[in-house]
Design a protein around this nucleic acid. Structure first.
Lengths: 140, 140
DNA sequence: TATTGTTATACTCTATAACTATA
DNA sequence: TATAGTTATAGAGTATAACAATA
């Protein structure tokens, strides 16, 4: 059996690649808007799909409710997000982006598209498709 | 332009996949030996390539010297690693695995091989090769 | 002056338990 | 009793600056 190399070990490679791409894209939402990763994801969900409760964000984004709770508070402080207590179930709040939050979303969405295109440009279409499908398969 | 989806965004997919595989393989080195990620990587380097200094581990493993310093101390406390002050340059130490450390390395290496094979089994050879190459390309 | 390695510190991220208010 | 959301806390990971000892 041949020498096992860390450089081929999938958890190692995934971790390195994820760290690098995270650091790169973080520059967009952190430097420009002082946001953390979970905050950006929530802005994405609200911007892309509109008003919803924290519970819906949790299930859509595979995020724990404690992460969402803290990120929602942070976004509210930045005036990117507004809450509206539900009248039918007073435990829930409807969350939505403010005008400012929507503007941030549009800019972030564009940056994400650009990032994705630049990224895809490093690979053939087949390679990119296989990579994407493989990563999706892994997260199921 | 079509709706941008987080589910296709590469930094998101990479992060999710990396987290999952990290959690899975962590079970091996953490539960069995109480080790953290950097500690396992250092055990790997010393087990695979033999005695070397912290500086060499840093460059081989793309790890910062502060991470290595702390992980080396932790491995020493667990009696998995021994240090020997260099006589030619008294700033350096030669690091190597103890007998116990070597035994741990062999078990971890086997677990890593098994993990890798199980992982590869989810894909065709072509897919696996493309995935691996893509991830390597990303970390360059 | 530069390098090897250590220590201190702060921030980010993950995970879990305990809690409140409401259903 | 169960659910939506909050707060507290600890552990793990990342990043940087300052430092001691040595070259």
């Amino acid at each position: 059996m041949p020498g096992f190399e860390l450089e081929n070990f999938i958890p190692y490679l995934l971790n390195r690649a994820a760290e690098k791409s995270s650091r790169e894209f973080q520059a967009v939402y952190k430097q420009e808007y002082g946001m953390l990763r979970t905050e950006w994801r929530i802005v994405f969900h609200l911007g892309r799909y509109g008003e919803m409760t924290a519970r819906e964000i949790c299930s859509r984004g595979a995020l724990h409710k404690t992460k969402v709770s803290r990120a929602v508070s942070a976004l509210e402080e930045k005036r990117f997000l507004a809450r509206k207590r539900s009248e039918t179930d007073r435990r829930e709040e409807y969350l939505s982006l403010t005008r400012q939050g929507k503007s941030v979303f549009r800019k972030l969405e564009n940056s994400a598209r650009e990032y994705q295109e630049r990224f895809a440009g490093n690979f053939t279409q087949d390679e990119f498709r296989i990579l994407t499908n493989a990563l999706k398969k892994l997260t199921e």
